[in-house]
């Protein structure tokens, strides 16, 4: 699969649209889901994912396969774009802007997907990024450190704090 991917990369650099479509099909879902978990907003996440795919089309010559995997490079671009958005003054997700629910959450909602996604959004940005990249995107700590321009030790520490905060959240909910 890796050599297959390097062949696709070489073909995209030469302007092959079919090879580009294959790479997009392979990487777009992961980048979109990552951005959604970091930003907490479906539409902004889709914008970020499409911007990353545009970079894949226009700037693939800047990718160095000796330094990282293609998915790591794309997530690094997505990460930087998400950080730009999160640090803009007055950043507010559509989920934040929604009216609070009239009914209190059901037990299923309290312990379910909505609850975990809300708890993730409450984590500090760096802890959330480290956890999402490691747990949901399946990157190694070394790759996460590369994406976040950090060290492996710092990533381990962020993960510890992120999981500690989530455990507290889980205990409070229960």
């Amino acid at each position: 699969m890796v050599s297959d991917e390097s062949e696709l990369v070489a073909r995209v650099c030469q302007g092959d649209r079919r090879a580009y479509a294959s790479l997009v099909a392979r990487h777009l879902p992961a980048v979109e889901v990552y951005a959604r978990r970091i930003l907490g907003d479906e539409y902004l996440a889709q914008d970020v994912a499409q911007e990353v795919m545009l970079v894949l089309w226009q700037r693939l010559d800047r990718f160095n396969p000796e330094k990282s995997r293609l998915t790591t490079w794309l997530h690094r671009i997505a990460h930087n774009r998400c950080i730009d958005l999160l640090r803009k003054p007055g950043y507010k997700t559509l989920e934040d802007a929604r009216e609070p629910a009239a009914q209190p959450p059901t037990t299923q909602e309290t312990f379910g997907a909505a609850s975990i996604d809300a708890a993730l959004c409450e984590l500090p940005e760096s802890q959330r990024t480290a956890l999402v990249l490691t747990y949901y995107q399946n990157f190694t700590n070394r790759e996460v450190a590369l994406i976040m321009s950090s060290s492996v030790r710092a990533v381990e520490s962020l993960l510890c704090r992120a999981r500690g905060n989530l455990k507290k959240h889980l205990e409070t909910d229960q």
């Binding site: 997009v24 879902p29 979109e32 499409q50 545009l54 997907a113």
Partner: peptide
């Protein structure tokens, strides 16, 4: 239990770009 899913159509995005 987190169930975030991708909704974009990859083929359409690739074609448009």
């Amino acid at each position: 239990q987190s169930s975030v899913t991708a909704n974009l159509d990859a083929q359409a995005v690739a074609r448009q770009i």
